[in-house]
Design a protein around this nucleic acid. Sequence first.
DNA 1: CCTATTCTCGCACAGTCGTGTTATATTCGG
DNA 2: CCGAATATAACACGACTGTGCGAGAATAGG
Lengths: 205, 205
Amino acid sequence: MPKIVDHEQRRRELAEAVWRVIARDGVAEVSMRTVAAEAGWSSGALRHYFSTRDGLLAFACELVIERVTERITALRHTGTPREAVRAILLETMPVDAERRAEASVAFAFVALGLTDAELAEVKRLSFTGMYELCLRLVTEMANIGALAEPHPPLETSARRLHAVVDGLTLHVLAGHLTPAEMTAEFDAYLAELIPDRPAPAPVHP
Amino acid sequence: MPKIVDHEQRRRELAEAVWRVIARDGVAEVSMRTVAAEAGWSSGALRHYFSTRDGLLAFACELVIERVTERITALRHTGTPREAVRAILLETMPVDAERRAEASVAFAFVALGLTDAELAEVKRLSFTGMYELCLRLVTEMANIGALAEPHPPLETSARRLHAVVDGLTLHVLAGHLTPAEMTAEFDAYLAELIPDRPAPAPVHP
DNA sequence: CCTATTCTCGCACAGTCGTGTTATATTCGG
DNA sequence: CCGAATATAACACGACTGTGCGAGAATAGG
């Protein structure tokens, strides 16, 4: 019978080509042809795995979310609670070239029209997932008594943390802050949110 | 002699057409033809005022910055120091349809490739101007003793305020927060940054 | 080897893009 | 009224877009 290739693996390769194009030339340069050229294939071959450009972009964004989620769940919590929170959230921020490319992909979807329904759903999942992560972290910090007192309602703390993370990320992507400046500001914020103190309980829940 | 039209006025009209297209269909739909159609002119007429698409986009973004700046400088400070800061920064955030369109324009430039040098310069001015505004506000609050104590260095407070403003703005543009939720979160943050107390000095410097 | 099935490629199509170039309208000083 | 200067319009060109389509290459079972 015929030649058999791993479709899922090929789609991941194509998605990585999309990331490279976005990171290098911006999302406006993403087209079926440019992505095929980046991956080293013909545009006809690409169309066997993605029939439309929107589908290609949506998969590329979904894969970013999946990769970041996997990295976060694979993290072993070491050190203080604050260091654990820091390590988790820094996985979503542009601290190096790879994470910068991932963040660029995620943010590119917001600026585009997003008329496509599938893209809009991916975008919605991206933001709500990130908010729920912030809410979970803040809640855990409160449960172990690590959160600075007094503090506003947990939903407010979570939304604010979410805004700080995305705001700093945006400023790095725009070239307004360097990754080092971003990390320093983020550390200063976390130090106020989760102050130093003898931890009343271990970080592992 | 020939028919004379106000070039600057025409360019402003065209820029407003750009805003409408971006707000309605996204920045990807901005082209010489779509903008000309939105403004009710032919594409040839448009080319008398903007020879290239990049120049058109850059002018549209510059005009947004100019308009927001004018609105802020025209504000009369009324009420408490915190209310003054709130009123100033809310001018830059998507609280209504008009300001949402302006914010969309400014953010659209970040996601695009921004390979064009002129666009990159406009973008840089946009972010540094916003940061300097935050730094000035924080410094004034510190000078009149309105800033919560203890507080980090003023540069840190300014960068954090900037990140919160842009993060909340991004979340509204992405449809993740409603303008009302954004305003509520922003108020909660300002209430911690500039707590209630008998003001030691009037707000007017 | 043969054949069926899958994969890959390249081209064609219609549309849009940015950008010229050319021609027509429109207007005002003389 | 007239011609000079400007504004607007219309079209042409090449390049690019997303998306189909068909031909050929590659492979695994018979």
